[in-house]
Amino acid sequence: MNNIFSTVKSFYHKLGSFPWFYKFSSKFIPIVFILGFPIFFLGIIWGIYFSPTDVTQGEIYRIIYLHVPAASVAQTVYFAMAIAGFVYVVWKMKMAGLFIYAMAPIGASFTILALISGAIWGQPTWGTWWIWDARLTSTLVLLLFYLVIIGLYSSFDNKKSADQAVSILTMVGAINLPIIKKSVDWWNTLHQPATIKVFSESSIANEMLYPLLICIFSFYILVFLFGLMAMRAEIAKRELNKSWFKNLVLGND
């Protein structure tokens, strides 16, 4: 028991060190790359060519294989950033601040992808690009939070202050987002007694579900890959003048 605890602790300390992370992640990237893209193409091709056509929506429903994974990733990335923010504020772990910085643009991109694919899906199915539904509104606000985080980060010169500021904002935003979602829900039930039900509870056929799950899984792997690469790029930027980095790049190590 004690042994497991000390292993976890030493892993945590290693994770906080830039050189260790930089070297360790370089071994990971090819594996994730080789794993991520084939699974992604498997899911997408299966979804687009081999899964059955939806009875009510027709072919347009196939955008689900892009939309649902993107929306899921967008939320999860923010949640992970909020946890990293907590880690940074409490334990001042440099890597956590770097994680938020690296993930924010990635999360923002997936949020935009989710919004756009949702609008394209919405137009033929419910006859409108946009409705002020709780999910859509909270996704839009999620995008706002991502953008504000990126903006706040870029306004600081001192990385330490920037990490601290962004960590605080990410945490407060994470508390705020569910409240926003819930209050739009309450507001909606009063304004318009549900005329359009966006996501019906109807269960999805297995032939459609499997490729969807594969797509979701592959999106997470890809986000992991992009995140690793963005974090490595930022480490390189911050540690450019450090001797360990020069040694590594020049191959003296």
Binding site: V148, S183, V184
Partner: peptide, 16 residues
């Protein structure tokens, strides 16, 4: 920047 931080945070208050 300050407004951009404050306004999204205040959204639930506006709705409620």
């Amino acid at each position: 920047l300050a407004s951009a931080i404050m306004l999204p945070l205040s959204l639930p208050v506006l709705i409620l």
